[in-house]
């Protein structure tokens, strides 16, 4: 088991057939997540292809994370939370200035985590795309209004992801403190590879 501290990144290769379980230890902790084909990182998670293939914007048990080439990267084999976000993307210093004001630019953000952790694997700015947000609650109203609202997760909930090919996973344990995605209090998560 690996504990990812609050606000910290993590990365690793999950071999085909292995399952990565992400445990929301403290409850309502958004986990920003990107996944790449380890053999060719230009083949990477595609939020729109994943949404189209399942006809739904929310991820839960049975959801398959597809690449832009429509190849399956990982499958959700366990989900005790219920639904997870595909459309909200990652917080960044830059988008924080838009959402909350220029004064938030110095704050830590998920894109910082992705860039630093991705650099260990030769990934850079061009390799960041719309990501999964495990445990983050982003409803869409009938008039299209959407937003990050209070979470539906609680301590100890789990998401299990089976690798369908050898994959590289980048995680940002979200440091956001300006919206409810972490209950305004980022907490550690646990990772188990089995």
């Amino acid at each position: 088991m690996t504990v990812v501290p609050a606000r910290a990144p993590w990365s690793g290769v999950i071999a085909r057939g292995q399952t990565l379980t992400i445990i929301d230890s403290g409850g309502n902790q958004a986990v920003d997540f990107l996944v790449y084909d380890a053999a060719d990182t230009s083949v990477r998670y595609s939020a729109p292809d994943t949404i189209v293939m399942q006809g739904n914007i929310f991820l839960t048990s049975g959801s398959v994370l597809y690449s832009g080439a429509r190849t399956p990267l990982m499958t959700v084999v366990e989900d005790t939370c219920g639904r997870h976000d595909t459309i909200g993307g990652a917080c960044s210093k830059e988008s924080n200035t838009l959402r909350y004001g220029h004064h938030t630019r110095p704050q830590h953000a998920c894109v910082e985590n992705f860039l630093l952790e991705g650099s260990k694997w030769g990934l850079g700015k061009r390799d960041l795309v719309s990501n999964v947000n495990w445990y983050m609650n982003v409803p869409v109203e009938q008039d299209g209004t959407l937003g990050i609202v209070d979470g539906i997760s609680s301590p100890g909930l789990r998401v299990g992801l089976r690798a369908e090919t050898d994959v590289l996973v980048l995680i940002s344990n979200c440091p956001q403190i300006n919206n409810p995605c972490n209950g305004f209090d980022p907490t550690p998560i646990e990772l188990v590879v089995s």
């Binding site: 909200g88 838009l98 869409v140 299209g144 209004t145 937003g147």
Partner: peptide, 22 residues
């Protein structure tokens, strides 16, 4: 696209929507 819809609090595109960069 994620920043475009999230920052402007709306999933649908129409007049007045800004297309945002990362």
């Amino acid at each position: 696209v994620a920043d475009t819809v999230k920052v402007q609090w709306n999933a649908y595109l129409g007049a007045g929507v800004l297309l945002l960069s990362d």
